[in-house]
Design a protein around this nucleic acid. Structure first.
Length: 565
RNA sequence: UGGGCCGUCGACUAAUGGUAGGUCAAGUGCCUUUGGAGCACUUUGUCUAGGUUCGAAUCCUAGCGGCCCAGCCA
């Protein structure tokens, strides 16, 4: 066994599998499944589950099925089925079998009949409301339904007629006969089947009764001979029921193991609430780059490698916690730093005129594409008398510690020349609209033959050669670490960040970016990582900022000037 | 206040009765044609109280704190 370069840290699920392997449980076989309900798009929380399910099976030479948990025809759609498959593949995983819980509807029906015949299930005529009342409370036991003691024959007949469509929605259900006094509410005669005259995305109108999650999930695991069935913590209370059905049915004993779901600061990971954001148009869609969906994150410019590394780093446990968003951002920076070619782009242009530079001269300056990757090569960038620099890179009255351009000060233009600011031009509102400089011809390429040092190197683009672009800058979608932290009666949308999207319409890019294809990623020097959006048009590219570079100066400035409000 | 689960640096996670370690964050310095990247160093932790033991983050007891469960959702 070769030592892996970055060994996956162990976790309690892996320990369980290791132990089962040692004791030869399941004939030393490892099989998992990733079981999404196709009622929404996959998000970063699912990525954690995917990495666990597929990762563990891969590690032990096992199999992983993709199985759609499609037992509720009213919420599920093929659009979601398609996006989920695309996202799993994009993340870099390959499933063995592709299944649907609905593939098992016939088998499930037969098993339900088997339980009725064994006296372990009955048809209940109580309404939903009445069932709720009979269920008792957290501290008081429930009461038996008056229909609990029906004869086998009557139960069989009624269940068959439920299937045949003789009864309206909600009029009857099939229930497991377990224990109405159980302290675990899931064991108080849980509903197995409900009547739903609804068209199913796969089975069409074949069925008008549909199994509940509890009477489908474990059985599906068992049918596929899944050995280790990982799910999130809220299903711990369902495990006794999961096992009860397997025992009563005498089928393959898959084992359910629960782990902690991912929580990320400043991020909403409830599928229902993500759907709400889409439906109420707080975002442009499931793939809005501010969304934590895999499609949103992908459009934002994240790489699958970064997400996988993140999932590996956060680990798996049973502790309810919240990962800091900075952790995710670290892993995308780490990955993009190695692979993203550099380019120069000015987001808020300020015109610079180099007064002593020849009027119509243009020089091609050599620039390295990626200092982290010697094989990435170099490119040429045109320089001329009129440039744009970042507004932030000039201050008429520089604060302490600021060492970019200001009157009388010399800085280096990256891959260009050293320039010294000689003056400014202002408009009637006293705003600087133009900066004047002189350059030192001896410093071509940014070199200083005399060994002189400058404190700062800034990026620039030649005005005559620049490409106009739209750049979209993002902040967190929510202003609070916990978006669900609201006052009574308030919806989580009150925590939406009004500044989560900022569009810069007049960005100027170096000409090499002209034909960058959608999805390609760059580091704009000194600014951050950016990704070409699919809204780009031939005349005007659109870039998304994936994540900003770490900005030491911004930190210093913030510390020196605490917020006024 | 019925049942289930969980408490280790600011965050996440290891240590499986035997040196409390790693990553992120924060801080300091070095270096730098990105105030980027990199490198070095530093700060901070076993929820509390008892008990078992030569030895406890780990085992036991009792507290305290947090999360989940009363859908014909998953």
């Amino acid at each position: 066994m070769a030592a892996s370069p970055s060994p996956a840290p162990s976790n309690f699920v892996r320990d369980i599998i290791l132990d089962d392997l040692k004791t030869n449980k399941y004939e030393a076989r490892v099989q998992t499944r990733f079981p999404p309900e196709p009622n929404g798009y996959l998000h970063i929380g699912h990525a954690k589950a995917i990495c666990l399910d597929f990762g563990l099976a891969d590690e032990f030479g096992g199999k992983t099925n993709l199985r759609f948990d499609d037992t509720n025809p009213e919420k599920e759609e093929t659009e979601y089925v398609d996006s989920i498959q695309e996202d799993v593949k994009w993340l870099g995983f390959h499933w063995d079998g592709l299944f649907y819980a609905s593939d098992y509807f016939d088998q499930l029906y037969q098993w339900a009949v088997k339980l009725i015949k064994a006296g372990k299930a009955y048809v209940d005529d109580l309404s939903a409301e009445e069932i709720r009342k009979h269920r008792g409370t957290l501290t008081e036991p429930g009461e038996d339904s008056p229909y609990r003691s029906r004869s086998l024959e009557e139960n069989l007949d009624l269940f068959e007629r439920m299937k045949a469509g003789e009864f309206p929605d909600g009029s009857r259900v099939l229930r497991a006969k377990i224990d109405m006094a159980s302290p675990n509410l899931n064991m108080r005669d849980p509903v197995m089947y409900r009547i739903l005259h609804a068209e199913h995305h796969r089975t069409g109108n074949k069925w008008c009764i549909y199994p509940m999650y509890d009477f489908a999930h474990g059985q599906s695991d068992s049918l596929e001979r899944v050995t280790h069935s990982m799910c999130t913590l809220e299903f711990e209370d369902h495990r006794p029921l999961y096992n009860w059905f397997i025992e009563q049915l005498e089928i393959f004993p898959s084992r359910q193991i629960e782990f902690d779901r991912l929580n990320l600061t400043y991020t909403q990971l409830s599928k229902r609430k993500l759907l709400q954001l889409v439906e109420q148009k707080h975002v442009s869609g499931w793939d809005d780059p501010r969304m934590p969906t895999l499609s949103g994150i992908r459009r934002r410019g994240y790489t699958p490698e970064a997400i996988r590394n993140f999932c590996k780093a956060i680990g798996v446990s049973k502790t309810n916690g919240s990962i800091e968003l900075a952790m995710l951002e670290h892993f995308v920076r780490e990955d993009l730093n190695k692979r993203a070619p550099r380019a120069m782009a000015v987001l808020r242009p300020l015109k610079v005129v180099i007064d002593n530079y020849p009027q119509n001269q243009v020089e091609e300056m050599d620039a390295v594409n990626n200092p982290e990757d010697a094989t990435a090569g170099t490119r040429e960038i045109p320089l001329s008398r009129v440039l744009y620099i970042e507004r932030d890179d000039f201050r008429e009255d520089p604060p302490k510690g600021y060492y970019r351009l200001s009157p009388g000060r010399e800085v280096r233009l990256r891959y260009g020349y050293l320039v010294t600011c000689t003056g400014v031009v202002k408009n009637e509102k006293d705003e600087v609209i133009e900066v004047h400089c002189t350059y030192d011809p001896a410093t071509r390429g940014g070199n200083t033959p005399d060994g002189r040092k400058v404190k700062s190197t800034i990026h620039w683009v030649s005005a005559a050669h620049a490409i106009d672009a739209e750049v979209r800058l993002y902040q967190t979608l929510f202003t609070k670490e916990d978006p669900n932290d609201t006052k009574d009666g308030e919806d989580f949308t009150v925590n939406l960040n009004p500044q989560s999207l900022e569009v810069r319409n007049s960005a100027k890019l170096e000409p090499s970016l002209k034909n960058a294809p959608a999805g390609s990623r760059y580091q704009f020097e000194r600014l951050g990582y950016f990704c070409v959006d699919l809204d780009s048009t031939p005349g005007k590219p659109v870039f998304n900022r994936t994540v900003a570079l770490k900005d030491t100066w911004a930190k210093v400035e913030k510390k020196n000037q605490p917020p006024r409000n």
